[in-house]
């Protein structure tokens, strides 16, 4: 039981997919303009992650090693389509706000990374718990970034006005540059906290979970080959 709890909690803090592993940067930057969008994206990705982790873990002895990446992508794309259709039917406004970033969950490194790195080697229960933990970590990071950007850039908290009536909000924070800026500061904070606890700070993009890793020269030797 304690190991399951560990699988869950590692995704939240120690191995937070966004702030510690630096995966899924594209949706993190694009969607975090408002806290509620971050929440929607996080929940959608968690559902996909849960579904794909469970199915891949169930099929881990059936899928031949050589075609595993295409097989994983197909499974993930299936779940993404289900989530897309559900969202279109029940939450059309959120679906509009997420736009193309919803189907882009297919190529989100977090999901493929967990499929390749965890679900393909572990039992169904552990994979499900891992998915929920990682999904929660992703959601937490997206929502906190959404709260910061929304507060600074629009003066609201989950669309409720806070300072917007009497302070002119810093609009650029909800525009693309603000995304890069807030993300940079958050990584710096996470790094400082990690250093204080005696852990290694992240200094490069965590592309190790990416599906192209095997073929990609960047993944094999810490960007070694590419930058020689």
């Amino acid at each position: 039981m304690s190991s399951l709890r560990q699988e869950f909690s590692k995704g939240l803090i120690l191995e937070n997919p966004v702030l510690r592993l630096v995966l899924g940067t594209c949706p993190t930057l694009a969607i975090s303009t408002a806290a509620i969008n971050g929440m929607g994206m996080g929940v959608a990705a968690t559902l996909v992650l849960l579904g794909s982790n469970v199915v891949i873990s169930l099929l881990r002895k059936v899928i031949p090693d050589r075609v595993r990446i295409p097989a994983y992508i197909t499974i993930i794309a299936g779940f993404v389509s289900i989530v897309q259709m559900l969202m279109k039917a029940y939450l059309p406004t959120l679906d509009k706000a997420l736009g193309i970033y919803l189907p882009l969950i297919v190529v989100n490194c977090i999901i493929l990374g967990r499929a390749e790195g965890f679900a393909s080697k572990n039992s169904v229960l552990a994979s499900a718990v891992d998915a929920i933990g990682m999904g929660a970590g992703f959601t937490a990071a997206l929502v906190s970034m959404g709260i910061i950007r929304e507060f600074l850039g629009a003066g609201t908290f989950f669309s409720l006005p806070v300072t917007s009536q009497f302070i002119e909000p810093i609009k650029v924070m909800v525009l693309p540059p603000g995304g890069f800026f807030v993300f940079g500061i958050l990584i710096a904070v996470a790094n400082s906290l990690a250093r204080r606890k005696g852990r290694k700070p992240v200094d490069s993009l965590g592309c190790h979970g990416c599906a192209g890793c095997e073929a990609c020269p960047a993944g094999q030797s810490e960007e070694g080959k590419l930058n020689e």
Binding site: V22, V172, L175, P176, P177, G178, G179, F180, F181, F183, G184, I185, I187, A188, V189, N191, S192, P201, V202, D203, S204, L205
Partner: peptide, 21 residues
Amino acid sequence: KPLNGLPITLIAASIVALSFL
């Protein structure tokens, strides 16, 4: 030190994005 590495890269990207605005 706190900004070294990825954080400063992201902040630089932010400035490039700002200029593209």
